[in-house]
């Protein structure tokens, strides 16, 4: 499977990853290699097999509806790069 430049740039944008243009060829090569390796899975006949959505056999792991706040505001804000006494602060987003 060959990845083209457009696909590479789209994936990079969606993942918010940045790299220099001169590294693009290297990235393409690397991505292509990974995809080709995973592509081997297509050799398996999956006719009539439901897609696997979870590795665990567990179902209905449900919680009762009980409110417990486990994290204080102060501790919650602690790791934020930017904050004030009440809020997380992020660069202005307008929608």
């Amino acid at each position: 499977m060959q990845v083209d430049k457009e696909t590479l740039r789209k994936i990079a944008h969606l993942a918010r990853l940045e790299f220099k243009e001169k590294n693009e060829d290297e990235m393409i090569e690397s991505l292509t290699e990974i995809l080709s390796w995973v592509q081997q899975l297509e050799e398996v006949d999956t006719e009539g097999v439901e897609p696997l959505t979870t590795m665990s056999k567990e179902v209905n792991a449900l919680r009762e509806d009980k409110a417990i706040n486990k994290l204080s505001q102060q501790n919650g804000l602690k790791n934020a790069p930017q904050k004030d006494s009440d809020y997380f602060r992020v660069p202005k987003v307008l929608d």
């Binding site: 409110a67 417990i68 706040n69 486990k70 505001q73 804000l77 009440d86 809020y87």
Partner: peptide
Amino acid sequence: ADATTFGDTPNTNI
């Protein structure tokens, strides 16, 4: 399990 009360102090139900 965080509470859902409307109008609480910001970032307390986290």
